[in-house]
Write a protein that binds this DNA or RNA. Structure first.
Length: 517
DNA sequence: TTTGTAATAT
DNA sequence: CATATTACAA
């Protein structure tokens, strides 16, 4: 099934022989692209009509490895084609167009485009496209394995941002229209739809979620709080009682653990933490800001302060550079090119823990702790948001809206979330969510071609779950214009390696030689 | 049976 | 760590 061996006899040159189908109504572009692609040693097929492209693809479902299609074409909308391809042959599709209108780009990504190129397209972009194919295969393997009944992997990560040159808006290989992989693990009610998140997700208590939680708690009354009640009030469909229970437990624990040593009297009472412990007014004052509007009593305010000061810290923007993931990676043996990708049969195991995107987020986790003088902005941001108000501030700018579901940010598996939302009230932010997810995860890592990049790509491929909730973006984008300038900085100041120097046969050789062994 | 919680696991 | 899972009692 996954077999789509390269017709090219040259098995040694890695990306060579990739069978690319180019679709564009503009013959000029077609020619240009063909030329460029051939220069990359790809096997090119051009096509001026989307319809033709489709039939070509249908004729030989395994005749191509990847499709590059223009967005606007007379006979068939590029997206339409994209959809079909995703649905029928599940090939990676790269969209392209002259304008970079975000809505359009998003649409492309939403519809399953694995990448979106802006014309004029440059060689370096084309040189990298093979990675999409590559990644895709990895996914497939993973999916299959997951179906074989192993446990889930946890995905958590913050996002990165657009690529510097703004030319390559790399997305994920998420075909919204992807073919359903039948089998399913009996449990796990959610996400019966997203192949990429086939595994059970771990709830990530985003600010938004936590807000709901807090809100619920306050609505109920600290004395009567109970997982069930909270859960109900939160009105987050996919959340389970356990989730809430767990969170509840931690919430108060954390509180006590607060180094500031808040009046945690030796209370024997279990629920003490939640109800007692009234922190000094000052504290409450400063950290409560964002929440008072949502509740009544002063008590509540104080309570919130508790939650805020201790817990939300981690959600601060300052966290964003802390990209971390932990997950399993399929070992890959590239010795013989794509045809050798580990297929559903193989079962080597490679554990990649906390693999920080090498070149890129190199400053990652540690930066939070250290003083990085060369990053005044960062420091400033950090001191402001972390030390004092923590992310709360961000939240402040974004008052809890009255609408509920709308902001469900469990970016984790948008589909499920969405599904449930709809079930509940027919509202859905699917698009935004989805798009954002893609932007977060997919973008940022140019599909370069170094070993490092590769790793990154895989991870990326795996990590659909971004911690950065929608709200984060909203905060920044819609509420506080100022910090905007800093975002790219905070988010992405990493991968600015230059892709240009990467393409030399040697590189591939390097890859070949057990980079992954 | 359902719910809340403590303990324990990942 | 933060969150999940388990076990058990109310």
């Amino acid at each position: 099934m996954v077999e789509s061996g390269f017709s090219s006899p040259r098995h040694d040159a890695f990306p060579a022989g990739l069978r690319v189908l180019v679709v564009d109504d503009d013959p000029t572009w077609l020619k240009i692209l063909e030329k460029m692609l051939k220069k990359c040693s790809y096997e090119v097929t051009t096509c001026g009509l989307a319809r033709d492209a489709l039939s070509l693809l249908r004729e030989r479902k395994d005749g191509y490895d990847i499709v590059i299609s223009d967005v606007n074409m007379p006979d068939m909308d590029g997206f339409k084609l994209l959809e079909h391809v995703g649905l029928e042959m599940d090939l990676p599709v790269i969209m392209m167009s002259v304008d970079g209108e975000t809505s359009r780009v998003m649409k492309g990504v939403q519809h399953g485009a694995c990448d979106y190129l802006l014309k004029p397209i440059r060689m370096k972009e084309l040189r990298n496209i093979w990675q999409h194919v590559f990644r895709k295969k990895i996914h497939e393997v993973r999916d299959i394995e997951s179906l074989e009944g192993n446990e889930g992997l946890q995905m958590t990560r913050s996002g990165s941002d657009l690529v510097d040159d703004g030319h390559l808006l790399s997305g994920e290989d998420m075909n919204s229209a992807r073919k359903r992989k039948d089998a399913e693990n009996k449990h796990d009610d959610r996400d019966l739809s997203d192949p990429s998140s086939t595994k059970k997700a771990r709830v990530v208590w985003t600010v938004d979620l936590h807000q709901k939680f807090v809100k619920a708690v306050n609505q109920i009354g600290f004395d009567k709080v109970g997982p069930k009640k909270i859960l109900d009030l939160m009105n987050v469909p996919w959340l389970t009682r356990e989730n809430v229970a767990s969170h509840l437990q931690n919430v108060d624990l954390n509180h006590e653990g607060d180094k500031k040593g808040i009046t945690s009297a030796p209370v024997a009472e279990p629920k003490g933490a939640l109800s007692i412990d009234i922190p000094d007014p000052h504290k409450a004052q400063s950290s409560q800001i964002s929440f008072d509007h949502s509740l009544g009593s002063v008590d509540s305010g104080l309570k919130f302060a508790l939650f805020n000061s201790t817990n939300q810290t981690r959600y601060s923007w300052s966290e964003i550079p802390e990209i971390q993931f932990k997950q399993e990676c399929e070992p890959l043996q590239l010795e013989n090119g794509f045809s050798q990708l580990p297929l559903p049969g193989s079962q080597h195991q490679v554990q990649t823990e906390y693999l920080q995107p090498a070149a890129s987020i190199s400053s990652g986790p540690s930066i939070t702790e250290k003083e990085v003088s060369s990053r005044p902005l960062y420091d400033e941001y950090r001191s402001n948001h972390v030390k004092h108000l923590s992310p709360t501030e961000a939240v402040d700018l974004f008052p809890v809206p009255s609408r509920n579901q709308t902001l469900n940010n469990q970016v984790f598996n948008p589909i499920s979330a969405t599904t449930s939302s709809m079930k509940n009230q027919g509202i859905s932010l699917n698009d935004l969510e989805f798009a954002q997810r893609n932007l977060n995860g997919g973008v940022g890592v140019p599909i370069a071609s170094l070993s490092e990049d590769l790793q990154f790509c895989w991870l990326q491929g795996e990590c659909y779950a971004m911690n950065i909730g929608l709200q984060d973006f909203e905060c920044i984008e819609y509420n506080d214009p100022a910090p905007i300038a800093e975002i790219p900085f905070l988010l992405y100041d990493a991968p600015r390696f230059d892709h240009e120097h990467l393409f030399d046969p040697t590189e591939y050789a390097a890859i070949d030689q057990g980079l992954f062994a």
